[in-house]
Each structure stands twice: as structure tokens, then as C-alpha cells.
């Protein structure tokens, strides 16, 4: 449910939060962080926080796009291919004709929006289940990209792009300095815009309503086509922005590396409480889902856990955190029945 329907008093809001999926997720993350911090002092440092935000910006930005699609009752897994195409198009043009930050992002996001519109057209006009449409378009976008580019990497990027940005720099130790880089900036903007869209606009409320009950939404006179178009184009725009963030971090454009990372993104969003059935999901939940995955991967290495064991631990913690939520909800239902 959108936050705008929140009860007015702070106390009631807190009580509501206490019962929410996000609360339990936050609890799991805090326990995990406390444990990891005690085990390795390197974990609870600003340096590690900035490193984590930077490394997970790509997955996080995509997760925000996917969150909106899931809330609207659809699903899109073609975003990795969309990102690969957007990245390639934007940086090839930037290399050939020159560009600046604004035009570069405009090109990547524009490409993403165009590909998102293709998804929306098929989903809405032909009523094909969105998962099938996006499996197909994933292969089509990716196939075309590989066909046209021959799978060739781009290593020479414009200097200003390779250098990136570095705001509010501060020194950390004798050799390192940290600041707000491109990854963190775009991730922050992504969270802000998505939160505003879902919680502070009429469109956001319509997206929740449509995802919760598409038939009712249509009968109420919602423009479901426009809404779906907006949702899939938003996913595409996020994929475009994320693709540049990733290219800047990796200092190269590699058409083949992004496809295959869909599940990381889906995991973060679903772990954050979004429902694959539509109508449910929050920006805070997505952030926490992402944080849980990031902290886990990072923490396991800092603890010196063998790589052979880490998938097991990742799976276990996901299962535990989802179980805790499910358990708390079951208890609540049981209490309600008793009462």
C-alpha cells in the first residue's frame, strides 16, 4: 500500500512499520551487520559503505525499475539486454561524435525507453503474459546487439567519462579518498525519483491499483495502456541509466556481461517484499532487499568464508529472512483469529 494512506500519527505509523515486511528485513540486516562488524572491524567503515554502494549501484538502479513493473502487475526480465544495448549505443555515439554527461545519459535513457515501449506494446496490445514477452525481447535485443557488434568490446571511452565524477571528496587513510561518485549519485537519484513516483503522484497510486486488480482499474476508467507504457518505459529508462553506471565502473563496454544478471535483480526486489502477483512493494523494501544481498556477499569475503561455501550461506540467509517475515505474518493472522 502506498505510504500516503498512512495513519496520521507517528505512533500508529511506527506500529504499522513494526508489523511490516520491511521491519523484519531491517532486523535481519542489523543483526547481520552487528555480527560482521564484531568479527571484522573493516566491515563497519565508511570506506566499506562507499565500496558497497558503488558496487551494487547497477543492480540497485535496475531493481528500482523492476519494482515499478512488479507493482503494476507485470514482470520484465529483458532489462539486462536493454541495458547492454543502451550502453553500446550511447558510448559508440559518444566516441564517434562526442558527447557530454547530459547527452550521454539522454541517449542511454532514450534507448532504454524505446525498448521498454516495445515490451509495453506487446504486453498491452496483444495481452501476452509479460514474462513471455520479456523473455522473447531479451533474446531479440541481445541477439541483435551481438549480431551487429560481433560481441566486440569497447575499451577506449571518452576521457571525461572514464574519469567520472567525484564530489564531496574526503581523505581516507594515507592512500585512499572517498566521495560521491557517479554510481552513488545515480543510485541516489534513482531512489528519490522512484519514491516520488510511487508515493507522491497520482500515477503512482494508479500503478498500485492496476497491479492489485487490473480489471477493476480498467472499469474505473484508468488508462491501462498509458500506465503500462509508462511502467515499462520507466524500467527501460532505469536500465539505460544503470548501464552507464556499470560501464563507468568497469571502464569498458562489454555487450556480453550484463545478460545473465537478471536473477540478482529479481532476488533483491522480491526479497524486499514486492509481490510477483502485483500491487505490493515499496522502495524501502527494495533498498533493504538490495542491502541484504550486498552485505551478505561482502561480509562473507571479509569473514574469510570459502567461496565454495558462500552460495550456501547466501541461500540460508535469504530463506531465514523470508521465513521470519512469513512467520510474523502467520502469528498476526493467528492472533486476529483468536481475538
Amino acid at each position: 500500500m502506498p505510504d500516503s494512506l498512512k495513519a496520521p500519527s507517528v505512533k500508529a505509523a511506527l506500529a504499522r512499520f513494526r508489523r511490516s515486511h520491511e521491519f523484519w528485513l531491517l532486523a535481519v540486516i542489523l543483526v547481520l551487520c552487528a555480527g560482521l562488524g564484531a568479527a571484522n572491524p573493516q566491515f563497519l567503515t565508511m570506506q566499506n559503505l562507499f565500496d558497497l554502494l558503488t558496487s551494487y549501484a547497477f543492480v540497485g538502479i535496475l531493481a528500482l525499475g523492476l519494482l515499478v513493473v512488479l507493482i503494476a502487475g507485470g514482470i520484465d526480465i529483458s532489462f539486462t539486454a536493454t541495458a547492454s544495448v543502451a550502453q553500446y549505443v550511447a558510448l559508440v555515439i559518444a566516441n564517434a561524435y562526442g558527447a557530454n554527461w547530459f547527452s550521454l545519459f539522454a541517449m542511454a535513457i532514450g534507448t532504454g525507453v524505446a525498448l521498454g515501449a516495445v515490451n509495453a506494446l506487446f504486453v498491452q496490445k496483444l495481452r501476452i503474459p509479460s514474462i513471455i514477452v520479456s523473455v522473447a525481447t531479451l533474446n531479440i535485443f541481445y541477439g541483435l546487439l551481438i549480431f551487429v557488434t560481433g560481441g566486440k568490446y569497447i575499451y577506449s571511452l571518452p576521457d571525461w567519462f572514464a574519469t567520472g565524477i567525484f564530489w564531496f571528496e574526503f581523505d581516507w587513510g594515507p592512500t585512499s579518498s572517498y566521495g560521491v561518485n557517479l554510481q552513488i549519485l545515480i543510485l541516489g537519484i534513482g531512489f528519490l525519483v522512484t519514491w516520488l513516483l510511487l508515493n507522491r503522484t497520482n500515477i503512482g497510486r494508479q500503478v498500485y491499483a492496476m497491479g492489485g486488480n487490473p480489471d477493476a482499474a480498467q472499469r474505473l476508467g484508468f488508462h491501462t495502456f498509458r500506465l503500462n507504457m509508462l511502467v515499462y518505459c520507466y524500467m527501460g529508462a532505469m536500465a539505460g541509466a544503470a548501464s552507464l553506471v556499470q560501464a563507468q565502473l568497469a571502464q569498458s563496454v562489454a555487450p556480453t556481461v550484463l545478460v545473465g544478471k537478471e536473477l540478482d535483480v529479481v532476488a533483491a526486489v522480491v526479497l524486499g517484499g514486492a509481490s510477483l502477483a502485483g500491487g505490493v512493494g515499496t522502495v524501502l523494501g527494495t533498498f533493504l532487499g538490495l542491502a541484504l544481498l550486498a552485505v551478505l556477499q561482502n561480509g562473507l569475503i571479509l569473514l574469510g568464508v570459502s567461496s565454495y561455501w558462500s552460495p550456501l550461506f547466501v541461500g540460508l540467509v535469504i530463506l531465514i529472512s523470508v521465513s521470519v517475515t512469513a512467520w510474523s505474518q502467520r502469528e498476526r493472522r493467528a492472533r486476529r483469529v483468536r481475538a
Binding site: N40, Q42, N48, A254, Q297, I301, L302, S307
Partner: peptide, 23 residues
């Protein structure tokens, strides 16, 4: 440490390296 996976992807090995340097 036991060998780390992820060397097929630049960003994964970059992230792993950041973590390994700290650990």
C-alpha cells in the same frame, strides 16, 4: 583464501578485489 569466482566479469572481480584487500 580458497579461490574466488567471478573472474568472467569485470565488475564482480573488481568488487571481490575491494573486499579481499580489506579482509
Amino acid at each position: 583464501a580458497d579461490r574466488f569466482p567471478g573472474a568472467d566479469e569485470i565488475d564482480t572481480s573488481q568488487r571481490t578485489t575491494q573486499d579481499v584487500i580489506k579482509a
